[in-house]
Amino acid sequence: MKNKPRILSTKILSQALSDKIHDSGFDLVQIDFIDIVKMKAQKKIDNQAVMISSKNAANFLDLNGRDIFCVGQKTKFAIEANDVQVSKVFSDSQEMALYVASKYKTATFICGMRRMNRVQEVFQEMEVELQIIEAYDTLLTPSAVPGYLSKVLFFSPSGVESFFLDNSFDGTAICIGNTTRSEVLKYIKDADVSNSTTIESVVEKALETRI
């Protein structure tokens, strides 16, 4: 009997998504390749415009009364779970930075210690003042995964870095967005991107083809 193709998720999925993958004829391996740790000291937000690129930063500071801009629907849901309205949602951090820098004279970016430099670069190029608040740290938790993997699901640049510390891969990479894809392309030649920046969309993209 031919072995089922194997999918690795670089984060633990919900039971419903796990069942969906199994029901589609795949074996599934799930490992958390990163761990999120809240920073003990928090700065005060100085500006009206606040940008958040990850749901990991959504619960650490008081966002009431601010103009909130974020990346992805999951981040939006996490912010609005605290009774805070999001002004606009973007597909990636560069798009968000370009919009906010064109509308405000100053802004605050709430992020992790490990991050891409796209937001800072946009604000520097447009000569707009930017306050950076590092609300959490991302710890890499690499793990070697034996055996062949047909597809790997990636949800953050840090997860990509952690995976490739102990693994090589020549199957199909499915990424939650273009920022994550850019990190994957440091290690392999090509990668697919989900249709939207949600975990569900990454899984759906992976299930479009069996091989």
Rank of each mutant, 00 (worst) to 15 (best):
S182F: 03
D192E: 14
L149R: 04
T75G: 07
A97M: 04
Q120K: 12
A107H: 01
F164G: 04
N82V: 00
L130K: 03
G72H: 05
R114V: 14
I188T: 05
T138N: 09
T172Q: 04
V100E: 01
Q124A: 11
F123G: 01
Q124C: 08
Q131F: 08
D92N: 11
V84T: 07
T141A: 05
F163W: 05
S168M: 09
Y148S: 12
G177K: 02
K76S: 13
I174D: 07
P157W: 05
S194T: 08
D137T: 11
N178G: 15
K105R: 13
V128C: 05
T179N: 02
V152K: 10
G72M: 10
G147Y: 00
G177Y: 00
M126V: 00
D170N: 15
D190L: 06
I174Y: 07
P157F: 04
L149N: 08
L165C: 08
V152S: 06
T75E: 13
I176M: 10
S168E: 15
S194G: 14
D137I: 10
Q85S: 12
S91H: 09
P146D: 07
S143E: 13
L98C: 12
L139N: 13
L130M: 03
F154R: 07
A101H: 02
N167T: 03
M126H: 08
D92W: 00
M113I: 15
Q94R: 10
S168H: 11
F169M: 01
A173N: 09
R115A: 14
S143H: 13
A173L: 10
K186W: 00
